[in-house]
Nucleic acid binder design. Sequence first.
DNA 1: CTACCGATTGACT
DNA 2: GTCAATCGGTAGA
Length: 197
Amino acid sequence: MTCKLATPDFFNRNPAEVARELLGAKLIRRWHDLEIEGRIVETEAYLSQNDPASHSFIGTRPRNRWMFGPPGTLYVYTIHRRFCLNAVTEATGIGSAVLIRAVEPLNHFETLKQNRQREKIHELTTGPGKLCEALQINLSHNGTSLCDRTDLWIELPISALPTIDEIVATPRVGISKAKELPLRFILKGNSFLSRKS
DNA sequence: CTACCGATTGACT
DNA sequence: GTCAATCGGTAGA
């Protein structure tokens, strides 16, 4: 697959658009001497305005300050002792992001199994907390850039993009506020989604 | 300091 | 489908 590195310009757009276009892209983690790759199959957008489910809704706080960084910044937070990975969208100071909720493992399956302490392929990266554990992403990544090929980055496909009928928008998962907004994007029927349709 | 609660997961009916 | 574990962040006294 021919690819191009996702740039700050790619992320400097509204989060729903970015979330949709991240489907099918590769998330790549350099870990020790490996490049662990996963294909993004599920994302969610969190808005800067009128979105009480978004961490930015209450304004800047110690935990969420990375969400107000420049486009392409990593924002990682903890929830129930798990980590979740976001890519910051729009301009510096706006406070919007895309949560990467699930990827399809593409290589280094044994490493993923070790990191997760699970054997089944569908228990490795099928949720935001699971994929962070599998790819060894944690709070130390907060504030770093997704837009260079050092630690963690995204390669966008140039060919073989998902077709429009493969992409579905649904309500977001696991939130109690603004539940109705269709800001979750999935590759329809993919077996590595965090929940079954 | 205490109290509340969540962008989850895994186990269970 | 339901539900508890479990703990850091936040607000408030």
